[in-house]
């Protein structure tokens, strides 16, 4: 965490008052937050975040949508549900983080390519084959982020190939993907197409 604290003048900044409501199923759950910090204390990756979970939920309740969507916080969430099961106010925090990731991907927030690329590559492979294909997923992922960083994983990849832990399979491009229909239908039902 940065030791420099930033002063935000709440009367001068643009605030999205509906932001916190859009993050949970019923809508008012986050308003129950008492800033106790149990979420931060229980989070295994809090130490690597620029803004801790407790701080981020406060920002969300203040309507600082843009600032929240530009934190690293959600991308360091491993979906381990520690904060959600520990929250004394019963707020579905882990699920709210999934909503934040959805928004950041839909709004194409810049600066988190290694994270958004991970979700895109995974989703594309799943849609095409109906199942994960680790090798094609990793190739797609590194192609869309930083090919050089792939070299750090090459030794391990080779060892995994030798043990049959990843299967070398030819990509099948073209033609209908295994889950195309289902993905399209979901998009249609959610009014995304």
């Amino acid at each position: 965490m940065s030791s420099d604290s930033e002063v935000i003048n709440l009367t001068e900044i643009r605030r999205d008052t509906a932001f916190a409501e859009s993050l949970t199923p019923v809508g008012h759950e986050l308003k129950r937050c008492i800033q106790c910090g149990t979420c931060t204390a229980s989070c295994p990756s809090a130490a690597f975040m620029d803004v801790t979970p407790r701080q981020m939920w406060r920002m969300a309740n203040l309507g600082l949508a843009d600032q929240v969507l530009h934190t690293k916080t959600m991308w360091l969430c491993t979906v381990c549900y520690e904060c959600q099961v520990s929250c004394p106010r019963g707020i579905p925090l882990t699920e709210a983080i999934a909503r934040l990731k959805q928004m950041a991907i839909q709004e194409r927030i810049k600066g988190f390519k290694e994270s958004t690329a991970f979700y895109r590559a995974f989703s594309d492979v799943m849609r095409r084959y109906g199942k994960m294909r680790e090798m094609e997923f990793m190739v797609r992922y590194f192609m869309s982020t930083n090919l050089l960083s792939a070299t750090g994983f090459a030794g391990m990849g080779l060892k995994m190939l030798q043990r049959g832990k990843v299967k070398p399979e030819m990509p099948q491009l073209g033609g209908e993907g295994r889950l195309d229909k289902l993905f399209d239908r979901v998009a249609e039902l959610e009014g995304r197409r």
Partner: peptide, 14 residues
């Protein structure tokens, strides 16, 4: 087919 892993819910709630 795949359960969606940690990715399905990030693509959309449904």
């Amino acid at each position: 087919t795949c359960c969606g892993a940690s990715v399905g819910a990030v693509m959309s709630d449904l």
